[in-house]
Design a protein around this nucleic acid. Structure first.
Lengths: 201, 201
DNA sequence: CCTTTTGAATACCGTTACAATATTCATATA
DNA sequence: TATATGAATATTGTAACGGTATTCAAAAGG
């Protein structure tokens, strides 16, 4: 076969890169901006891309997602990410990452969830303050490291559960209080695992 | 005088436009950005130049994309008071003090409320941790002592607002950070007042 | 007939180039 | 002395360019 006959391809329809296959997934434009703002803007663009993916993924996995609540209440509030907003604080534009219903976000298992008003400051370091509302899920397995509601001899406490080979402890997150040893599982009734805490100002 | 002798000016040193006399006051660069982001970016640049916005102005043209809920039904969760529950509890029995809908509890003015994810630990003492979700109400007057979301020269921060005769300050609740003086209202745009913070574990 | 290779076709992207303005200021003019 | 002029230089939005990346179907090879 002669060289000039060695041909592949050739003119054809349908060839060529697809539209929207670029890094931004949409048409682009060149604009002129001050030098000092180039990096912030590009960082922001990067975050915009990533955060969209993240939230989508997060919502997917966590089951909070946008799908179900037909008969339940659904109050959609715009949710911003601080990071994303930090550089470009304009509520008017499309910086809204997603919308979120607080009940949905905070309550995974409605039947097993209850709220509790905190008294005392023994969990201050974990961000739990006196007067906070705790969201407690009784369907979650209380494992080592989880913050739990435990009734010790009828005394209700919020502590971090520590299950080690040396024994089980209820550990306050406040240096002024000592860890409490749990001698037997018998003295302790765990009500549930704290999934969130809400402080109102 | 002949026409070709009618001359003004002429070659001379020092002539010409001064550097930095453009709209941005600094060298510029051309960058390519997605079309949908052109306007947001240019709005932001505009605002950076004359960061002259006050609370009222922000409210005016903010145009939040707040999604309206279809209707307000409630998710009632049992709310316990720590004291009351101290006995022995099951959310099913009558230790339940009341029931509470989180959206109702946390969102007073739905149209003016949005959520924000916190970054940083400058408000640790107020129980606001990195990663928390803040509930921000834009309809509440930012007064002395309120925790506010403030954009200082485009930088978004969560701080306690201090309005004294000596001036206005944004005060972090973390000893590692100094209070930030607000020289003029012009530097500062207050997005809203924080009404609650939610930590999830 | 099925799989792999190939290269034309097309989109994308960072940068430069360019033409139209805008600004400045020493000089010519009144 | 005050004003008008126009060369000199900066700025700015957009077009253009060259280099890459991607896609697809025809050609080549099993």
């Amino acid at each position: 076969m002669r060289d000039d006959e060695k041909k592949h391809g050739g003119a054809r329809i349908g060839a060529g890169r697809k539209k929207g296959s670029g890094k931004f997934g949409e048409p682009t434009k060149v604009i002129r901006v001050p030098e000092s703002k180039v990096e912030p803007i590009q960082n922001w663009l990067e975050r915009q891309k990533r955060s969209k993916q993240n939230w989508a993924g997060l919502l997917e996995n966590s089951g909070f997602a946008v799908h179900q609540p037909a008969n339940d209440s659904y109050v959609s509030l715009p949710l911003f990410s601080h990071k994303v907003v930090a550089g470009f604080p304009s509520p008017a534009d499309d910086y809204i990452e997603t919308t979120l219903d607080l009940n949905e976000k905070l309550v995974r298992n409605k039947e097993a969830t209850f709220l509790l008003v905190v008294e005392g400051d023994s969990m201050q370091k974990a961000g739990i303050q006196d007067g906070d509302i705790l969201v407690v899920d009784r369907s979650i397995e209380p494992t080592d490291g989880k913050i739990v509601i435990a009734a010790l001899d009828g005394e209700l406490t919020v502590k971090r559960l520590s299950v080690k080979s040396t024994g089980t402890w209820l550990v306050p997150e406040n240096d002024n209080y000592p860890p409490i040893p749990v001698r037997e599982e018998a003295d302790m009734v765990i009500w549930g695992v704290v999934t969130a805490t809400i402080s109102q100002f």
